[in-house]
Each structure stands twice: as structure tokens, then as C-alpha cells.
Amino acid sequence: MRELTMMQHDDRYALAEEYVKVTYKLWESSWRQDAVVLDRERGIYTDPTRVRQINHVGKYFNVPGPHLCQPSPQRTPVILQAGTSKAGKTFAAQHAEAIFVAGHSPSVVAKNVAEIRQLAKTEFGRDPRSIKFLALLCPVLGHTEEEAVEKFKYYRSLGSIDGALALFGGWTGIDLNKYGDDEELRHVESNAIRSAVEGWSKATPEVAKWTKATVGQHITVGGLGATPVGTAAQVADNMERWVQEADVDGFNLAYAIKPGSFLDIIELLIPELRRRGLFWDDYAVPKGTYRENLYSQAGQSGPRDDHPASRYRWKAGVASADHPVPEN
């Protein structure tokens, strides 16, 4: 683990790139689709001629294989990814099926979403709409706007500014302690800090000055994601704005308190979203796999044809020699 944490950022993505290809080989290329026979009369579970080693030899891993058990119905599980650095965007555009994104305003997130969709199309031949983006959102809900505002003030009063700044440093790699208590962060030399503060300023223009204490207070509730405060209708309006302006497909709902935040979502927000036709009443594919329901498409249990994992699949009836394990 120490060696991993000391690796350069791009090197970590190179390791991840090799790792994901090893797993594609194990999940998709080791067992042929018809390897499992389940012949109880003859006592045959698997035809051994339809299971093979992958014999991967790489920079970071040597994995002979084979996959140790029958693959799941999805084989390759749905790949969710977080991270929007330059290397992270490239990795996501090639491999991710859903991506967690965070920002305090839709305009900040929209740029990353558009860039990844474009990369997926032009560099990797994927349908950019097949990649789902999930925005981090921590709604603070009340039956009235006044009730929601009072909740939000109370939640903030429980937070630790020092603890929030420590989390911020861990999340972003940015140490704000080197700046003065009253220093305006919109004027510092760091592009990363100025960009982050600019995003927060757009979401909360009522804040006159952004200091490290302001940043700490801002992320005590909701972290690096948006924190809409209001009635169910007001929060639903906010969510619709995110979909329209940031081009996200859904939300990763966070909580201020547990289980209170989730109870408010269940009792107040979901009925409002359903009234607007924005939240499902049942699974799109009842009893289907996660991927079938992600795409609302029965039968899409495995990766789509334009996903890199699909070319690793050893299909039923195909001889091993006719479908060698892909090298890359």
C-alpha cells in the first residue's frame, strides 16, 4: 500500500488500466459462455475444455488464471468510476459505465461531463450517451423553506471547520493552512483553488469573501457536492436544473444526518419527483441485472458492444483457438 500511495498520479491510472484489462480477461475470456453444463445425471458441472488460463504477463501483474468460479450473469460488473483529472477523464471515457461527479454548481460539472462524453466518442468509439453521470447531492429538506433553512443552520453548527479543512486536503491534495485566516482565496496563486472557489461563488453568490474558514464551513454539510436547501418542490427544481445545465443522468444522494436525511428524501422528495414523472415506480427490468436496469434494456446483462470489455468475451460454441485471449 505504501508503494501505491507514493506512485505518481498517472502511474496509478496506468496500474488501474492494466488491472481492469486483467479482470476483463478473467471475467470474459477464461470461461466460455456455455462452459457450465449442469448435467446432474453424468455428474458434470463444467466442461473443462471450455475453461482456460489467461496467462497475463504485464508491468504490474502476472496472472495465469483461470477464473476460479463460474462468472456472474453480468460477467463484467457495472464499472463505476470517480475522478476527473486528465488521466481520470481518459480512463472514464474508455472504461466507465457510470461516473460520480461533484461540484457546487452545474456549470462546473458540465465542462467535465461534456469533455468525457466527447473523448468517449472520438477516442474510443463509444456512444457518449451510454455513459451515465451521477452528481453528488446532499439535499436538506423541510415541509417549508423556513424549516429547511433552520435544519441547515443546525447541521452546520455541528460541523468542525478544522475537520472539514482536513477532509478538503485529503480529497483535493490542497493544504489551505498555509493561507492566512482572512486571505481572500479568489486571489491566491493556485489555479486549483481559484477554480474551486469560483465554482462555489457561482452556487452561493451571497458569500462576499472566501477564506479558508468560509471553505471549511461550506463543506461541513454536503462536502464537495451541491447542497440544495428548501421544500421538496424547490429541491426538485434544483435537480431538474442540474440535469438540464450539467447534462447529468442522475444523482448520488448524500446525507447530513443518518437516517434523518434519507427519511426526508423518502417522505418528501421522492413523492414530488414521482409527481413530475422523474422517478421510477418499479425496475425497468424486473428481476434483471444491475446493467439491464441501468440501461433500461432487457438482455443487456453484459457490457455493450462498444465497451472494451465486450471484445474479450469468449462466446458459446467458439473454439479456444478461434478466440484467443486478447493481449490488450
Rank of each mutant, 00 (worst) to 15 (best):
D10T: 13
D11N: 02
D11V: 13
Y13V: 00
Y13G: 01
A14N: 11
L15A: 14
E18Q: 06
Y19W: 10
Y19C: 08
V22W: 04
V22M: 02
Y24A: 12
K25V: 08
K25N: 07
W27E: 02
W27V: 02
S30H: 00
Q33T: 14
D34H: 09
A35K: 03
V36Q: 11
V36T: 10
V37C: 07
L38A: 13
D39M: 05
D39I: 00
R42N: 14
R42Q: 14
G43F: 04
Y45S: 15
Y45L: 15
D47V: 02
D47Y: 09
P48W: 01
R50S: 03
R50H: 11
R52L: 08
Q53H: 14
Q53Y: 14
N55F: 06
H56E: 04
V57M: 13
V57A: 13
G58A: 02
Y60S: 05
F61A: 07
V63Q: 10
V63F: 07
V63R: 03
V63A: 05
H67W: 10
L68Q: 12
L68M: 11
C69L: 10
C69P: 10
C69G: 15
S72I: 10
S72R: 00
P73H: 04
R75I: 05
T76D: 01
P77C: 11
V78P: 01
V78T: 14
L80R: 15
S85C: 08
K86Q: 14
A87G: 01
G88A: 10
G88W: 13
G88D: 09
K89Q: 14
T90H: 09
F91N: 01
F91L: 00
F91K: 01
A92V: 06
Q94R: 15
Q94H: 13
Q94E: 15
H95G: 00
E97N: 06
I99R: 07
F100K: 06
F100S: 02
H104V: 02
S105H: 12
S105Q: 12
P106R: 09
S107V: 12
V109W: 08
V109E: 03
V109T: 06
V109Y: 08
A110L: 07
A110Q: 00
K111Y: 13
K111I: 11
N112A: 15
N112P: 10
E115F: 01
E115W: 06
E115I: 06
E115R: 07
R117C: 08
Q118Y: 14
Q118P: 00
L119P: 04
K121S: 14
T122P: 05
T122V: 12
T122F: 04
E123Y: 11
R126A: 02
R126E: 07
D127Y: 05
D127T: 13
D127G: 11
